[in-house]
């Protein structure tokens, strides 16, 4: 991938299952067995009830577009314009991401539009991104 100049995360012990999941083509997050709350970002205690009885699960990969900006300034590995978005997963939690496979314009990026996860290979790390739902996955 030419995307290797993009910033890469350094996984930590509590986040490793998330990044291992992305590598395997799965969007994995956590939920609490005590109160059933699904949550993100990864941490070993439920932020709603404080329980340590939490588990990883594979999400549906479906989300909606909660909010976004279109950056007109290039960043390392990103040519402007590109979309930085907050998406809301079907399971509830929100996450930051990029919207791909669509022209980054206000006309094409409509709030609440249906999205589905894609996985962007950046060499040693795979990063979840999102694309409009129902499109054929680009090769």
């Amino acid at each position: 991938m030419s995307a290797s100049t993009k910033a890469l995360p350094t996984p930590t012990p509590e986040t490793a299952p998330y990044w291992e999941g992305a590598r395997a083509g799965e969007l994995r997050i956590q939920r609490c067995r005590a109160c059933t709350q699904a949550y993100f970002y990864p941490r070993p205690y439920c932020p709603q009830c404080g329980s340590a009885d939490v588990e990883w699960f594979v999400t549906s990969g479906r989300a909606t577009l909660a909010s976004y900006i279109i950056s007109e300034r290039a960043a390392p590995g990103f040519d402007a314009p590109y979309a930085i978005a907050i998406v809301e997963l079907e399971e509830g939690p929100r996450m930051m991401t990029n919207i791909v496979e669509v022209e980054p314009t206000p006309e094409r990026l409509v709030l609440d539009m249906a999205l589905e996860v894609r996985f962007e290979d950046r060499g040693e790390i795979t990063v979840p991104v999102f694309a409009p739902a129902g499109q054929a996955v680009e090769a």
Partner: peptide, 8 residues
């Protein structure tokens, strides 16, 4: 650094 910075 892990969950926001990678998105430009």
């Amino acid at each position: 650094g892990q969950f926001e910075a990678p998105y430009g």
